[in-house]
Lab assay of single mutants.
Amino acid sequence: STVKVRLGHLEVTLHNVSEEDVRELRELWKNGADEEDLRRWLEEWKK
């Protein structure tokens, strides 16, 4: 499914993403990950 995730002022649209992935991303964000960390996660996730 396609999910729009809003993290601060960063809005990311993920395609074919699982609930688990979204949860993981939100956890990262809650734990103080900055945009760099999130971008890195997204790069990994896209592979």
Rank of each mutant, 00 (worst) to 15 (best):
W45L: 10
E20M: 09
L14R: 00
L25M: 04
T2C: 07
S1H: 15
N16A: 06
W41C: 02
E43Q: 07
N31Y: 05
V17D: 00
L38G: 00
L38D: 00
R39C: 04
W41R: 01
L14N: 00
V17E: 01
R39T: 08
L14S: 00
R6V: 14
E11Y: 06
W45V: 10
E11G: 03
W45R: 11
E24Y: 12
R40K: 13
R6A: 08
V22M: 15
R39Q: 10
A33T: 05
L10F: 14
V3P: 01
V22H: 07
E20S: 13
K46P: 05
E44Y: 07
L28F: 05
K30P: 05
V22Q: 10
E27K: 07
E43G: 03
W45K: 12
E43V: 04
R39E: 08
D21F: 14
H9G: 14
D34E: 11
L14W: 01
L38F: 11
E27D: 12
G32W: 02
D34N: 13
L38A: 02
D21W: 15
R26Q: 14
A33I: 09
T13H: 10
D37F: 07
T2D: 06
L7Y: 05
L10S: 09
S18F: 05
R40T: 08
W45T: 05
V3N: 02
D21G: 11
W45Q: 08
G32E: 06
A33D: 03
T13E: 10
E27N: 07
V17K: 01
L42T: 02
H9C: 10
W41I: 03
V5Q: 01
R6P: 02
D21Q: 11
G32K: 04
W29R: 12
V3W: 01
R23Y: 12
L10G: 07
T2L: 08
L14Y: 01
D34C: 03
V12K: 02
T2E: 06
S1P: 07
A33F: 07
V12C: 10
W29I: 15
H15I: 09
K4M: 04
S18A: 11
H15N: 08
S1A: 15
E19W: 10
R39W: 12
E20V: 09
D34F: 07
H15L: 08
D34V: 10
W45Y: 12
D37A: 15
N31A: 09
L28K: 05
H15E: 08
G32R: 02
R6G: 03
V12H: 06
E20W: 03
L14G: 01
V22L: 15
K30S: 13
G8Y: 02
K46E: 12
L10M: 12
R23E: 11
E44F: 06
E44N: 15
E11V: 10
R39L: 14
S18G: 06
T2H: 09
G8C: 02
R23L: 14
V5Y: 00
G32P: 02
A33Q: 04
R23G: 07
E24G: 08
W41Q: 01
D21N: 08
E35Q: 09
H15Q: 08
E19M: 10
K4A: 07
E35K: 05
A33L: 06
V17I: 11
V12T: 04
D37L: 12
L25P: 00
A33H: 04
N16M: 06
L28P: 00
D34G: 14
T13I: 14
G32I: 04
E35R: 03
L7K: 03
L38C: 02
H15C: 09
K30A: 15
V12L: 11
D37R: 10
W45I: 09
R26S: 13
N16Q: 06
K30H: 13
T13V: 14
A33G: 10
T13K: 03
E20N: 10
R6L: 13
T2M: 10
W41S: 01
V22W: 11
L14C: 06
K4R: 13
E36A: 12
K46H: 14
D34I: 08
K47E: 08
E24K: 15
S18E: 05
A33N: 04
